[in-house]
Computed example of a mutant assay.
Amino acid sequence: MKIIYYKLFLRASIAFSFLSAVADRLGLWPEEISAWGNWANFLVYTKLLNPWFPDSFINPIGIVVTFIEVLLAIFLIIGFKTSLFARLSGYILLLFGLAMTFTIGIKAPFDYSVFTASAAGFGLSLIKQKYLEIDVLFNDNR
Rank of each mutant, 00 (worst) to 15 (best):
A15Y: 03
F16R: 08
F16I: 09
F18N: 05
F18V: 04
S20E: 15
A23G: 03
D24T: 05
L26I: 04
L28Q: 05
P30T: 01
P30G: 02
E32A: 14
E32D: 14
S34K: 10
G37C: 02
N38R: 06
W39Q: 02
A40D: 15
A40K: 14
L43K: 06
L43C: 06
Y45R: 09
T46R: 04
K47Q: 15
L48P: 00
L48F: 09
P51E: 00
F53S: 04
S56N: 13
F57H: 09
N59V: 14
P60E: 02
P60V: 05
G62N: 10
I63H: 03
T66I: 07
F67R: 07
I68T: 11
E69Q: 15
V70L: 15
L71M: 14
L72E: 07
I74K: 07
I74P: 03
I74T: 12
F75S: 11
F75M: 04
F75Y: 10
L76N: 01
L76K: 03
G79Q: 04
S83K: 13
L84G: 03
L84Y: 14
A86Y: 11
L88Y: 02
Y91I: 12
L95Q: 05
L95K: 02
L98F: 06
L98C: 03
A99V: 06
G105K: 05
K107Y: 12
F110G: 04
Y112V: 07
Y112Q: 09
V114T: 15
